[in-house]
Amino acid sequence: MTTLQASEPVDLLEHAEQGASLWRDAWQRLRKNKMAVGGGITLLLFILMALLTPWLAPYSYEAQNLDLGASPPSAAHWLGTDVFGRDVLTQVMYGGRVSLAVGFIATAVALLIGVTWGAVAGYVGGRVDAVMMRIVDILYALPFMIFIVLLMVVFGRNVLLLFLAIGAVEWLTMARIMRSQVQSLRQQEFVEAAISLGLSPAAIIRRHVIPNALGPIIVYTTLTIPSVMLLEAFLSFLGLGIQPPESSWGLLINYGVETMEEYPWLLIFPGLALTTTLFSLNFLGDGLRDALDVRGSKD
């Protein structure tokens, strides 16, 4: 056991050894996973590209060259042009902004609602839990497509509404995961210890429950983003999502499919951008799951 040096000066902060938190352990495991790191870097590049599009894009978004028409990839237009002579690279870059934004923002909406809802239901329990989870069940049972179509019809189409609609569906699973996490955590002795310290329920959820439930949530988040992006692509493809003049990968793919036979590059490049992003997210998610799963592996 440890020995004490009595009456040493109080210099805790300067000389104390820094411990290895579970987050740091997970980070180190993640770093060893080449697929996950590759996925993370690719994703980062796509995000950077989306953020810097107005400066990076070779042409302006509205620029047309009707004389050129649809042309295959060339030195002037790396990914070719569409039937209006618009640069495909520019289109893909601007479309990526919307697709990624939908993916991240809708997921963030889902995360915020789902984690709060699930944490409260799981922690409070009893009747409150029953009512909250029945609401989740009811929303689950609503046919998603009809829900979206209704929203579009009633409120008209816009991007914000799309974020909301997708977020409103995706938070349900998030809430369920969070609730089961919290239910098992609230039985833990450290939560009881926090109760007997006199901490308020809100503080207990914030300080003791959520940080410990975050692992599975992070993993599920990285896997939700691609499914949301896919959902947006699907809706846009059906003509229910993003409207021109706005553009997204899903919409570009939709146009590409129509002219697939004559101008395959109009389908291939937006499709490639979407699948690469989805793959990166999935690899990163898998890596995160492996890294976060091993609990206290140092024991």
Partner: peptide, 17 residues
């Protein structure tokens, strides 16, 4: 820390350590 007989330089460590 002194009261319960733990070395002070463990202060920044986590329970699993």
């Amino acid at each position: 820390m002194d009261d319960v007989g733990l070395a002070r330089n463990f202060i920044r460590k986590y329970p699993h350590e």
